[in-house]
Structure formats: C-alpha cells, structure tokens
Design a protein around this nucleic acid. Structure first.
Lengths: 187, 187
DNA sequence: GTGATTATTTATCATATGTTAAGTACTTCC
DNA sequence: GGAAGTACTTAACATATGATAAATAATCAC
C-alpha cells in the first residue's frame, strides 16, 4: 500500500492518523486479467488504485463495448458518475492484465471527511485534477481528427498501445477498430 | 445575491458566518452583451455566478471560435482548467446577453477553506457535480451523431437555441455552423 | 430609415469515418 | 501441437460532416 500513499502525498500531506484511517478501509487484492471488478448496474462504492497493472472503465452503447478511460500503474480509477450521485452505474471496471489493486471503500471514506478535513481536502484535490483532465479531453475529442487523436495517444501514453488490445483503444479514441487499423496502416 | 445563496444551499447548508464570508468577497456586476469578463491568457481567479443572463466559455482553435460551455440564470461558470492549476487559461468568458453576474474572488475563497470546512465542502460538492456533467458530456459527444446531439440539446436545454446565436451552438455541438444549418433544414 | 455589418441558410463538392465482409495472425486450452 | 476462438488488418462501398462560396435574413450604427 506504500505506493498508494506516495500517490496521495502528491496531492496533500497526511497525518499518520489520517493515513492509518485510510489504510483501515482499504485492501489490496490481486486480480486476474479480464475480470470485472464491479459489474454494470451496481452503485459505485469503491475507489480503486492500480498498484500495478491496467484497468479500464467501459460500457455498452447499442450493444457495442465502449472504453471510457484507462488507468495504469499508480493511478486511481472510479466511476464518478455513480460515486458522486449514488445512482447505479451503467459502466463497469475491468482489469486488462493481471493486476494488483487497492480497493478503497468510498462509503467509509466519505464518512472520514467529517473527522479528517485533511482527507476531504486530499480527495477534493484528486478529483479537481481529474476534472481538469476530463475538460481537456473534451477538446481533444471534439476538434481533432481520429488520426491526430491516435498520434497524441502514441506520444502521451505509448504504454497504452503496448498493454491494451487495440479494440479497446479504438473506442477510447471514439472510432471503430477498423478505422484505427486503417490509420495505423497508412503509416 | 439572494439567488446565489439559494443555489449554494442546494449543495451544502451554510452557517450565517460562512455566508457572510462568501458575501464579503463577492460582488454583483451588470455586464453588457458581447463583453469578455476575463480575457484569454489570464489566470482564472474568479468564479462567476450568472444571476440573470447568459455566459459562455470559448477559445480559439486554429483561428476558429469554439464554445466550450454555456451558463444560464442561476448557474456557476469558471475556467476550471486554470482555476485548479494556476496556469493561464487559453479560454475566455463572454457574456452573451445583458446580464447580472456575481463575481467571487477565488483566491480569497480558497483561503476561507481552512477556516470554514463547510465552504470547502460546498465547493467540493459543486465541482464534483460539474465533473459528473462533464464525464457524461464526453459520452454524448463521442457516440452520437451531430443530429442526435442537436436533438438532445433541444430537449434538455431549449433555452440555448432561443438565447444563443447558432454559430456558438454549432461549435458547442462539435460541428460547423453550416452543418448545423443543414441539420435544422432537414426537419 | 438606410446602409453596413453580422447571422443564417442553401448548394456543391471533397473527405474522413462507418459498415460489412473476408482474410490473416495470434492466443488459449485441451 | 492442433483446433477453436479471439484479435487485427484489408478492401469495397455508403454516408455524415467539412470546406468553400454565394444568397438571403436579421441586426446594428448613424
């Protein structure tokens, strides 16, 4: 769980008591590739930290599997549209390669906010940062061609292409797998 | 400023002292149509609340004016990608019709967070909600045709079309104005 | 109110991406 | 290690949206 606290420390410095409180409601699990951590239709009550491995959030649009986002080593992943609303999520979290994951119980975590303002601040800062990433992503989706999007993925996150099946990358980029192959072929 | 506190009250109940503290660093201004509240290149240090009127966030992509988002009566608008990072924003906020705006000094507001955890919580909840909206918007952009996006805009926010020039709506939907006209014409 | 500017529509042609289908390459599992 | 399934590519055709240009409509300034 060391790397979790190293990650959290980048957002806010925590007291020993706060770290202990978070550790108490977290547990490390190893997960086999292709496993769903949480199924579609379930209300999200867990924030996951990818210690080592890869995960993605996905859902079905007209029967087609769509990847919303990826998380690699040392990053957090959660279905915020359910986590923050309490509504069931239409999305699932899937593990893409054999991974080591820290599962943080969000119901209990949110209860800690009253006792530990430093923890509330920590997660405020984490999700503010994620919010900024999401706002920036809209720009990338809306006003770049698929090829430009693919090129900047190669540049910003070359790991994705090595560790994630292309079919998942395609829907993440907002195109079909066939289009992605065409773009790759034209190089 | 009454409607601002009515809006804030939907997210978190505030003590009188907290309300007073927020009121002290806010000021109501009337702004003429087509005015930029804050120019491009400026680091965002203000959160705006639209008391009455319409505002939008926009930027230039290859010389073309792109609308990122709108805010109507009784809503908040801020360039979060600058507000939360401290970096200069490539975006501007423009007033679209003569409006009454409450400007909240964010530098001072963030300082209140230490003294008033209830204010930190309030804005955490506000931006968590905005984050969820943004995540949901990606889905709309990425996997619906321009026509579907236009139809759901009519349905969810008919005001937009009445109060906002179509050229701004087009880039918000991620298409050119000519395409938007074609879609409207085909009905 | 008239002219000038700005907003919107319509038409034509170009192009990126989608759809379907088939073929090849790679994995997995008994 | 061979069969079966899964992942990826390639090709041909269809279609939505972009680009450019020109026409009309609405708004603004004096």
């Amino acid at each position: 769980m060391t790397s979790l606290f190293k990650y959290l420390g980048k957002f806010n410095t925590l007291s020993k008591e706060a770290e202990k409180a978070i550790a108490e409601l977290s547990k490390t699990i190893t997960v086999k590739k292709n496993t769903d951590l949480q199924p579609i239709g379930h209300t999200c009550k867990t924030i996951y930290f990818v210690n080592k491995g890869v995960a993605r959030i996905y859902y079905f649009k007209d029967g087609v599997d769509i990847t919303e986002s990826f998380a690699f080593d040392n990053n957090i992943i959660a279905r915020v549209e359910s986590l923050f609303t309490g509504k069931p999520s239409r999305k699932a979290i899937q593990i893409i390669e054999d991974s080591e994951i820290v599962a943080i119980n969000s119901t209990q975590l949110f209860k800690l906010y009253d006792k530990f303002p430093e923890i509330e601040r920590l997660f405020r800062l984490i999700f503010e940062s994620a919010y900024v990433d999401t706002v920036n992503r809209i720009e990338g989706i809306q006003f770049h061609t698929a090829e430009e999007r693919y090129n900047s993925l190669i540049k910003d996150a070359p790991d994705v292409l090595k560790r994630v099946p292309l079919k998942y990358v395609a829907s993440y980029l907002g195109i079909t797998q066939v289009s992605l192959s065409r773009i790759r072929g034209s190089k």
